[in-house]
Amino acid sequence: MKKNIVTGAAGFIGSNLVTKLFSILDGACIIGLDNMNDYYDVSLKEYRLSQIEQTQAKSKCSFKFIRGDLADKELIDKLFNEYKPDIVVNLAAQAGVRYSIENPDAYINSNIIGFYNILEACRHYPVEHLIYASSSSVYGGNKKVPFSTDDMVDHPVSLYAATKKSNELLAHAYSKLYNIPTTGLRFFTVYGSAGRPDMAYFGFTNKLVNGETIKIYNYGNCKRDFTYVDDIVEGIMRVMQCPPEKKNGDDGLPIPPYALYNIGGGRPENLLDFVQILSEELVRAGVLPADYDFEAHKELVPMQPGDVPVTYADSSALERDFGFKPTIDLRTGLRKIAEWYKEYY
């Protein structure tokens, strides 16, 4: 019967989380918040909301959707005052590394001011647990792999990464000062059906369908720890149930109830292999013709600003504390995407 707020509820990860919660919770109240901005095709967000409504109709949970912005402090305060949530999952953010280079204001408003508003609301309307999305981008150009949450992350290579590191620092401060249980989750290259069109696999698919050439950066030598969205959602749900313990140190003062985890598959994939499998699955699903010449539609180009050559998650802490690690392999995930793309478009 708990009350849960999920921000970014019409977003890629948020909508998948809400839908999954309906299937496992009994009688819970879920409040979804999203500003429905036009960073990408709004009809995709509306599609996700329709999927949420269909699933909710078959569940015993209630759902309330609120269209609003994290940066609207008055709205956030009103939301917490009205619903007094037990658990808050903050997934709303301005995403995208490249977009942050040209549009920094959007990142400061959503990822800094918006997250501050959430923390302030959790302070004034105490919650059992705040879970928030961080990103593998915080590791920047770290050479040591796999990336561990014990690694130093003081050299971001994009504004997006800097805002996510800032979220972790702010959460730690609020956990220390106000004894708010917070858990940050560093997501690694999330992919899946009905994802964001600015994601590489989505953009690649659109270009291949239109007969355009796709650019593969760093001459195909980039590696990404792709994590299918169902695995991300499973990780979030496990973490939701177990807030960091509130306890005092030897000095009698609270030890910050703060935790931080990676969620990644732990299997970095070469980008060239990724697009090869994607093209094969698009052919299999009937999105591309059987005789499609993939080689003629790819171009190897240099690295672009803000990108990193490799991401690789050490998710051993998540497995240790929650008995979970991502399991969905790349071909299975890309097959689901190709089938969804065929049905949706």
Rank of each mutant, 00 (worst) to 15 (best):
L272H: 00
D225P: 09
C222I: 09
K246A: 04
E234W: 00
I232K: 02
L272T: 05
Y261L: 01
A259C: 06
G252E: 08
E269R: 13
I255S: 11
C242D: 07
I263L: 13
A259H: 04
G266D: 03
P257S: 05
Y228E: 12
G264A: 12
A259I: 04
N221A: 13
R267S: 07
D251C: 10
I263S: 02
F226W: 14
G264V: 08
L253D: 13
Y217P: 15
N262R: 03
T227P: 07
N218S: 13
N218R: 11
I255D: 13
Y258C: 06
E245V: 14
A259K: 12
E234C: 02
I236V: 14
E269A: 14
I255H: 04
D231G: 10
D251H: 08
L272K: 05
N248M: 10
I216K: 04
K246T: 08
L272F: 00
G220H: 10
Y219P: 10
P256R: 01
N262K: 07
D230Y: 09
G220E: 14
D225W: 06
V229G: 02
N248H: 09
I216N: 03
N218I: 03
L253S: 13
G264L: 05
V229S: 02
M240L: 12
G220R: 12
K215S: 15
Y261V: 00
E269C: 12
Y217K: 15
N270D: 04
G249I: 12
V233P: 09
G249R: 09
N218D: 15
M240I: 12
N221Y: 13
L271G: 01
D273F: 03
L272S: 05
R224T: 01
E245T: 14
G249Y: 07
A259R: 11
I216Q: 08
